[in-house]
């Protein structure tokens, strides 16, 4: 490996903290599997032995939003569910990214009806849209790689003016 050769030669590497942090972040993206409908099954398929999402450092699917930095919204988001998706997004620590997996999530897809949100970008900032209904696991992996590229380019100053969101707790 290149790293060992460098370390035995000089004992140090010159780089920026920004680059190291971005590299670490992108190599172990922990997804929050927001599995809502059909796409959730393909998301599990992406984690199973054949497609093996672990190759990309993202096998740690955590069902609690507080440990995650990537939300995969997999499935049709209805108006009733939108409140929940948004609240879970708010609970994730910064910095965070969102994949809109599948046609329904991206644009409402084939569901032009009274109860389906026509695209989650109406209430969430989406980073990558994965096409397909549902996308094949390969496509989800492709979306993950795209996110990793995006994360790799981030620098500390990108997150300087993050305002912590106000979580409104309904008093019922």
């Amino acid at each position: 490996m290149g790293l060992e050769a460098k370390l035995t030669q000089d004992g140090f590497i010159t780089t920026t903290i920004d680059a190291v942090v971005a590299w670490a972040r992108k190599s172990s993206v922990w997804p929050m599997p927001m599995g809502i409908s059909c796409c959730a099954i393909e998301m599990i398929a992406a984690a199973d032995p054949k497609y093996d999402i672990a190759r990309f450092g993202s096998e740690v699917m955590r069902f609690t939003p507080r440990q995650c930095d990537l939300m995969i919204v997999a499935g049709t988001v209805t108006y009733k569910m939108a409140q929940v998706v948004r609240r879970i997004y708010d609970q994730m620590p910064e910095p965070k990214w969102v994949i809109a997996m599948g046609a329904c999530t991206s644009s409402g897809g084939m569901y032009r009806s009274y109860s389906v949100v026509q695209g989650i970008d109406q209430f969430l900032p989406v980073d990558v849209y994965a096409a397909g209904c549902p996308p094949r696991p390969e496509n989800l992996l492709n979306a993950l790689i795209t996110i990793q590229e995006k994360i790799g380019k981030t620098r500390a100053r990108d997150f300087q003016d993050i305002i912590q969101p106000k979580i409104e707790i309904a008093n019922n």
């Binding site: 409908s37 499935g75 009733k80 084939m110 009806s113």
Partner: peptide, 30 residues
Amino acid sequence: LGYLHRGYEKMAEDMSFIEFIPHTDRLDYT
């Protein structure tokens, strides 16, 4: 229930019998 209510029955009234076949895929998606 109702967090995944997608309004199938309403949509079915609005499309032909042939058009509805792809929608049946997504009922029991397993």
